[in-house]
């Protein structure tokens, strides 16, 4: 009786051990794809379709088990990251996540660029460019580098000067320091007013809805933008047929179908028309040929020179009474190339 009990206990313990191991080790046919920066795991394994069909407790349980297993794998991966104790030996264990690789769409669309202010518009109209100026300038009196503007600026703050010049024609009794202060105040107030005006204009302009829906991923690639532009182009009632092109938009080749069904000429159509079309095509093709072919012209010149040299040599030979050499092949054909080099070519080595 006691022996049976021991076996039972052992079996139960083994089962418990196996259960514990099962909860930690997960077997997957396909490895999961991890993106630890986003705490993301992608399971490409096909789920058991039969089990998932229809609502019920079995399906629920299966989904729960699947989620648990995958979470287990993800957490196991997280534990593999190098970790350290934050704030001494007793602190919490902290691991640094790698850079996220998966491009998640933004929750909100990226902020629109601020519309140009009145001054920027004016500057653009007039072609005024911002000049880069150094922020530090050499102050002769202080013998050191000082800021161009603001607190402790080079040359001293004119508002804090101990001496103010009375301009010509001004009232000698007027307080010049007070005038400078007042003018400065006015300038600041005007600048603030302009700033608020620009803000109001930007707010009004910002209410327009963007034309094409772009995924709010922050940075769009060139291909994405081009694709969206193409889609927007053909999204008209005429499939973009009458859509004017933008100034620098490239002319894209028409799609193979061109929006129409592919259609060929009839097999036994108008053969005379077909012939005249082909003749027209031939005329068109021959007219596109270059007038002067350099290689051919050079070859022609070379050939002429060789022929002249050969003729001169042949004449000399016949004058000396040697045997007459064979004439050059008639009908534009040169002969005897394979054999030993004919005497006419011996001296024309260039």
């Amino acid at each position: 009786m006691a022996a049976v009990r021991v076996e039972e206990v052992l079996a139960a313990a083994e089962e418990q051990e196996a259960e514990k191991r099962r909860s930690v080790t997960v077997e997957k046919e396909l490895e999961l794809e991890f993106d630890l920066g986003n705490l993301l795991a992608l399971d490409r394994n096909p789920p058991a379709a039969v089990e998932l069909r229809g609502a019920g407790p079995r399906r629920e349980a299966l989904l729960r088990a699947l989620a648990r297993d995958n979470t287990q794998l993800l957490v196991a991966r997280l534990w593999e990251l190098p970790a350290e104790r934050a704030g001494g030996a007793g602190g919490p264990l902290v691991a640094r996540l790698p850079e996220p690789a998966f491009r998640l769409p933004r929750e909100k669309p990226p902020p629109r660029p601020r519309p140009p202010t009145r001054w920027e518009q004016f500057a653009r109209l007039k072609g005024i460019r911002r000049r880069k100026r150094t922020s530090l300038v050499w102050d002769e009196q202080a013998k050191e580098w000082r800021r161009r503007w603001g607190y402790r600026r080079a040359g001293g703050d004119p508002a804090r000067a101990w001496l103010a010049e009375v301009p010509e024609g001004a009232d000698p009794e007027e307080d010049q320091f007070a005038r400078l202060r007042r003018e400065k105040r006015e300038r600041v107030a005007r600048n603030e007013l302009n700033r608020l005006r620009n803000l109001a204009r930007a707010h009004r302009a910002g209410t327009a809805v963007p034309a094409a829906p772009l995924h709010p991923t922050g940075h769009q690639s060139r291909e994405e933008l081009g694709h969206v532009a193409r889609v927007a182009r053909v999204s008209t009632a005429s499939l973009g047929r009458f859509q004017p092109r933008l100034p620098k938009e490239p002319v894209e080749p028409p799609s193979r179908s061109g929006g129409r069904k592919r259609r060929f000429e009839p097999l036994l159509g108008n053969l005379a028309a077909e012939r005249s079309r082909q003749l027209e095509l031939l005329r068109d093709m021959s007219s596109k040929k270059p007038v002067l072919d350099i290689t051919r012209a050079v070859n022609k010149q070379l050939r002429q020179e060789e022929a002249e040299a050969a003729a001169a040599k042949g004449k000399k030979q016949s004058q000396r009474g040697k045997r007459g050499r064979r004439q050059q092949g008639a009908g534009g054909v040169s002969g005897g190339l394979g054999g030993p080099v004919p005497p006419s070519f011996a001296g024309t080595d260039r």
């Binding site: 290689t295 051919r296 070859n299 054909v333 040169s334 002969g335 394979g338």
Partner: peptide, 14 residues
């Protein structure tokens, strides 16, 4: 090959 060439039309381009 050149050795097998009997004749060739004049001004044949490459």
């Amino acid at each position: 090959l050149k050795s097998g060439l009997g004749r060739i039309t004049e001004n044949t381009a490459q």
